[in-house]
Each structure stands twice: as structure tokens, then as C-alpha cells.
Design a protein around this nucleic acid. Structure first.
Lengths: 205, 205
DNA sequence: GTCTATACGACGATAGAC
DNA sequence: GTCTATCGTCGTATAGAC
């Protein structure tokens, strides 16, 4: 077996892994952990169900990995926003829009998946604590942005972390609601950010 | 069989039904539809699992009834708020606190249950539409309160229904988050309502 | 109305051929 | 690496005794 072949195998393995993860996000969030069958996940990724166990030890293992993936992505997004060369308000606008970009359904599925993981008992407390910790990392990142916004004098006073929590609550709640209505309310970054901004007409007051 | 006995039987039936519904809310929301076994629901209500089918035709039937119950309760709550003799702001404050009262966990479980119902495929589209319609009824009720608040000049301008959606998104999102953190952020009705109020210091400006 | 026992199907996981 | 066939388990729903 040449090293060439070894590499090729590894590539195939990685690619299949990725396909299964993608498929799992879809299935788990649409059907929930228990109802998403292995065969749902594999057939959606166009593999046989037997092959699943060459890539993951169990259904539960895949579940937790997928949730980790989602949260890492979200943390990345926040970090990306933080590094832009713009005002805190601009960063928050960008972040708000990015959270709601792409397919609405996709965003909402990912969010529900995290919720389900936290509030069901498929996962042990240790795993749940890890998830909470990752989410908190994202909240802290947003808190930092808000803090600079306060120093710029554009944002209301108050504990930045608490304000970040309020912001995320609003953004995600809205995401959920929008995904179900026939004609979704056009997302208004303005309105989502209203609670953060000091006043609408600043110095002219 | 005397009429006296007939009545007694009916009472027992009703009571058992109620016990099963209560138990089901707990189990469904904690474990999800698929993972909540009939035996979980019955044993939690201290009945044998066989007896379940004397009260409900299937697990799915109970599921949808329970969700209806939750939404009817919520609509009642909004109507109650609307009928008070107070300003719109007072009504919204009362409603916000009522939503977060009782055990936090209980409130959050009920909310998650509705979400799960909407975003999983245990329910057919018809049932989902009914749920959305009920939820919308509650949103409309809140929208009405907001409208009077605008006429009083205390609330920001904008489509009342849209503002109601934002309010609920924030309130429920916060509920979810609070239930998972070790030391929940003390609910601040003030901050939840900030997005609705016109300015913090009104006429003195 | 309440219970226990059981039929029946579904699904996670494994074995073994290719 | 990929597939099909199969085992073992678990859970819904039913049957039938009390």
C-alpha cells in the first residue's frame, strides 16, 4: 500500500465524516435526537446505514460533536465581528445580519438543536456544562463588543454581559418566530439593536 | 348502576385525564416526543401504562392536546392582562412578570414544548398551522395592548403586531437562557420593556 | 376502571461478504 | 471502504383477567 493510497483513504474518510455531520445537523434538528434514525442520517448522506459505525462510535457521539461544531462556528462569527475596523454599533449590525443570513431555516435548525441538547436528557450533565460554557464564550465575546460601544458613548449603560444576553435572546427568539410565519417580518437590525442604542436622536435632544 | 355512580366515574375519568396531561407536559418537554415513553408518563402519574389507552387513543393525540392546553393558557393570560384597569405599560409589566413567574423550569418546558412541536415532524402540517394560529392569537392580543400604549404616547411608534413579536422573542429567549445558567440574571421587566418605551426620561428631555 | 402479560414493529448496533 | 443480513432490545399498542 503506497503512501499515496493512504492519503487518498484519509481524504475519503474526512469527506464522509463531513457529509455525515452535515446530514446529522439537518436530521437531528428536524426530528430531534430520538426520532432521527441512523438510517435517516446515512441515507440523506447517500451511504448505507452499516457504514455509519466506521465513522462514529455511536449515535450519541455524533450528536455531541455536531453541537460542538455549531457552537464553534458561532464563536468564530463573534470573533470575526470583533476584529473588524468599525464602531461597536457597526460590529453589532454585522453580527446581527450574519446570524440571520443564509437560509433562515438552517439558522433556526442549528439554534433549536442547541436548545434541545440543553433541555433534554440525552446528554449527561458534563456534556451539557460544556455546551453552556461554549455558549457563554460567545456571550462574553458579544459582551466585549458592547463594552467598547459603551465607551464610545453610543450604547446604554449596564452590565455588558447581561446586555449581551438580552441581545441574543431577542435575536434568536425572532429567528424562531420568523421561520414559522408565512410571510416573515423583514428583519430589522435597527429594531433588534434599539435596546442597545442610547437614544434614537442622540445629541439633538 | 345509579346516576350517582355514573357521576363518580366521570369525576375519576376527568381527574385521571388531568393527571396524565400534567405528567405529559413534564415528560414531553424534558425528553422530547419520541423519548418520552408512555410508561414514563403513566408512572409519573402513578398509573399503569396499559391504562393510558383508556384515556387517550394514542401518544400523538395526547401530544397535540397538551400543546393546545398550553397555548390556551397563554391566550387567557394575555386577555387577563388586557382587562385590567391600568395603563398599557402596567399591563405589559404584569404580563412580563406573569410569564416568568412560577417555577422557571416549568415555564421554559412549556415554551420548548411548543417549539418542538413546530419544528419537528411528529405533527402534520394541519396541526402545526393550528398551533401557529393559536400563538398568533396571543401575539395579536399583545399587539392590542401595545396599540393603546402608543395612543397613550408612552410606547414607540411602529406596527403593533411587529412590536409584539419582538417583545415575545425577547421574553421567551431570556426565559430559555435563564433556565440554564447557574445564577440566573434577575429578570428585569424594565429592561425587557425598554424596547417598547419611548424614552427613559420622557418629558424632562 | 385498573392491572399484567404479550404481540408486533422499529431501530441501534454487529458480523461478515465483497 | 462499502454493502447486506441479522441480532437483541425496547416501546407502542392490545388482550384479557380482576
Amino acid at each position: 500500500m503506497s503512501p499515496r493510497n493512504k492519503e487518498q483513504f484519509k481524504e475519503i474518510r474526512d469527506q464522509r465524516q463531513q457529509e455525515l455531520r452535515r446530514s446529522a445537523i439537518q436530521m437531528f434538528s428536524q426530528k430531534g435526537f430520538a426520532s432521527a434514525k441512523i438510517s435517516d442520517i446515512t441515507s440523506n448522506a447517500q451511504l448505507s446505514h452499516g457504514l455509519f459505525y466506521h465513522y462514529f462510535a455511536s449515535k450519541e457521539e455524533l450528536y455531541i460533536e455536531v453541537i460542538r461544531d455549531i457552537l464553534y462556528d458561532f464563536i468564530d462569527l463573534v470573533e470575526q465581528a470583533a476584529e473588524f475596523e468599525m464602531t461597536a454599533l457597526g460590529k453589532m449590525e454585522w453580527l446581527t445580519e450574519a446570524t440571520h443570513s443564509g437560509s433562515i431555516k438552517e439558522g433556526v435548525y442549528r439554534h433549536i438543536l442547541v436548545l434541545q441538547a440543553l433541555y433534554s436528557d440525552h446528554l449527561n450533565e458534563l456534556a451539557k456544562r460544556e455546551i453552556v460554557a461554549l455558549y457563554k464564550e460567545a456571550v462574553d465575546g458579544i459582551g466585549s463588543i458592547i463594552k467598547t460601544g459603551q465607551q464610545e458613548g453610543l450604547f446604554v449603560e449596564g452590565d455588558p454581559e447581561e446586555l449581551a444576553t438580552y441581545h441574543l435572546s431577542l435575536a434568536h427568539g425572532l429567528l424562531l418566530w420568523n421561520a414559522r410565519t408565512e410571510k416573515p417580518v423583514q428583519l430589522s437590525t435597527d429594531k433588534v439593536l434599539r435596546q442597545l442604542k442610547k437614544t434614537e436622536n442622540g445629541g439633538t435632544c
